[in-house]
């Protein structure tokens, strides 16, 4: 077992995922349409209703569209993480997950490679979204487009690891609707993606705390600051810690002796 083996396997997994993404045109379009509707329809409607004070990293009054752009980048990655999770459950039900799991490599490495592949796909989507937004004058400083890359990598890994963890618990594809109701929607709406924390504070102290400690909020803030060339240390530490915890739990979940996989019944003869 040498380093070249790991390298080839990792690129095999990433290449397969990217190829699937490129060839599945509907998936690419729907991944973009969702945040674009939020940006051009929802944000346009709420522009007048929501007055935004000047808060870091912004140094001037901004339009609501500008405010929610980092939140929508987070949304792309959140949905992508859940999509990857869904495809893992599908692959497990359909059997192709088995081919991955019976290859002679450590399971943590296989899961990490799968996660990197999903994150790569989400970053492609995020940059296409940023390009469309820029063409409609929703801009960030040029260097922000570079600084946001490491932030997107970390947030993508964190949200992907969450998806991976969920997929180890979900036995059947049908149970996935629950993930939408109990994970995606609460995470998205109880966050700083659509409204700043001080706005929430005006209405509910509890909601403010929930939003503040929501890993998704921290990922969005990491992206928001990076997009303006700034480093948000708290958000970075929080997002990194959430990634490590989710990843370790996912590895445990896929461990044949300890995780959920061991307790699931097998079909067939």
């Amino acid at each position: 077992m040498n380093i070249l083996h790991y390298w080839r396997a990792m690129w095999g997994i990433i290449g397969r995922e990217l190829w699937r993404f490129v060839t599945q045109r509907e998936r690419f379009i729907s991944a973009l349409v969702r945040p674009l509707i939020w940006l051009f329809v929802f944000a346009a409607g709420f522009r007048a209703a929501l007055g935004l004070a000047i808060t870091p990293p912004y140094e001037t009054y901004i339009l609501y569209e500008v405010y929610i752009t980092p939140g929508l980048l987070g949304m792309i990655q959140l949905f992508n993480g859940m999509q990857s999770s869904l495809s893992m459950v599908y692959d497990r039900e359909m059997g192709s997950m088995r081919i991955l799991l019976v290859s002679p490599l450590p399971r943590w490495f296989l899961l990490l490679s799968k996660l990197l592949a999903g994150t790569g796909v989400s970053i492609v989507q995020a940059y296409v979204f940023l390009a469309i937004a820029r063409s409609y004058d929703i801009e960030a400083p040029w260097q922000g487009y570079l600084w946001v890359l490491p932030a997107l990598v970390l947030s993508g890994l964190m949200l992907g690891a969450l998806g991976l963890l969920l997929s180890s618990f979900i036995k059947q594809l049908e149970n996935f609707a629950g993930v939408m109701n109990f994970v995606i929607f609460p995470m998205f709406f109880m966050s700083t993606a659509l409204y700043p924390l001080w706005k929430l504070q005006e209405s509910s102290e509890l909601l403010t705390h929930l939003a503040q400690y929501n890993p998704f909020s921290q990922a969005v803030e990491l992206i928001r600051f990076a997009l303006y060339g700034q480093f948000n240390q708290t958000a970075f530490v929080f997002t990194l810690s959430a990634f490590v915890i989710f990843m370790l739990a996912a590895i445990l979940g896929y461990n044949p002796s300890k995780g959920m996989m061991a307790r699931k019944g097998g079909a067939g003869g």
Binding site: H5, R8, A9, G12, M94, S103, P104
Partner: peptide, 22 residues
């Protein structure tokens, strides 16, 4: 159950497996 990726070609499926085995 079949464990092939339906949307990939025969060659792509086999190359994927070869990469997993280094």
């Amino acid at each position: 159950q079949t464990t092939l990726d339906m949307d990939l070609s025969v060659l792509q499926n086999l190359r994927y497996h070869a990469s997993l085995h280094g």
